[in-house]
């Protein structure tokens, strides 16, 4: 138990003391997570919207594929992206492997299915009268989509937040394609893994606390938004 308490105390000291390493790692993690979330949602939310609202050939297969991708092992994504970005791979010439962009790419691959599947579920759950009402009042295609998206906005926001949470907490792919290089690609999760294996339990605890705090903040913000929607 002493180990936990000592680790916790040192962790708090590091955070309160403004340790530059801790600050740098947290900033990089946030940058990676926010960039990946934005890119993943720019792609995933519209895809989910189309899958959830329109009828096309192969739609059921698309939904099944999305739901399967949700359970994609992150290390497999890591290995695949590594294979694409390595010097011998098809995109090796860009020199992206072991940069923070490599982590962003892997996280986008992981988060697009989440954003898409949750958005599809969100808009599928919308009262079909929303679409019909917009149509009967003379709305064109875009206005009708807008009305449906408006009705589903909180559920779509949840899709965004869940994607962010997944990206922030991911360790396997970030380790493989980022390489956990100090000052360059060391994120909160990879740093926690390294610190623990090196026996620096205090540092691991400090970084873990920050991860928890970030996740908590995002969820509290989400709750606040949803609360306002219910009022």
């Amino acid at each position: 138990m002493d180990l936990i308490w000592d680790g916790l105390r040192r962790g708090i000291d590091l955070i309160v003391g403004g340790d530059p390493d801790v600050f740098e790692i947290s900033a990089l993690s946030l940058r990676v997570a926010l960039t990946a979330t934005v890119l993943a949602c720019v792609v995933g939310v519209p895809v989910g919207f189309v899958v959830g609202t329109t009828r096309f050939w192969g739609r059921r297969a698309a939904i099944t594929a999305l739901n399967t991708l949700l359970a994609f092992p992150t290390v497999v994504v890591g290995v695949l992206v590594w294979g694409l970005l390595t010097r011998r791979g098809p995109f090796g010439g860009y020199g992206l492997l072991y940069t923070w962009w490599a982590i962003v790419i892997a996280e986008v691959v992981l988060a697009v299915p989440i954003a898409a599947a949750l958005t599809a579920a969100a808009v599928q759950g919308i009262d079909p009268r929303v679409r019909r009402t917009a149509l009967t009042l003379g709305a064109g295609r875009w206005r009708t989509h807008l009305a449906v998206a408006g009705a589903a906005r909180f559920a779509i926001l949840t899709a965004v937040v869940v994607s962010f949470g997944r990206v922030l907490a991911e360790v396997g792919a970030a380790m493989i394609v980022g390489g956990n290089i100090r000052h360059y690609t060391r994120t909160l999760t990879t740093a926690v893994a390294l610190a623990t294996s090196q026996g620096d339990f205090g540092l691991a605890m400090a970084l873990g606390l920050i991860l928890l705090a970030l996740a908590l903040t995002v969820n509290v913000l989400l709750q606040l938004f949803q609360g306002r929607g219910d009022a």
């Binding site: 009268r129 929303v130 019909r132 009402t133 009967t136 009042l137 003379g138 009305a147 408006g150």
Partner: peptide, 13 residues
């Protein structure tokens, strides 16, 4: 734009 329908259980935004 010229034809409109009021449903049985209308939906209000």
């Amino acid at each position: 734009r010229r034809v409109t329908l009021v449903e049985q259980a209308p939906y209000l935004f």
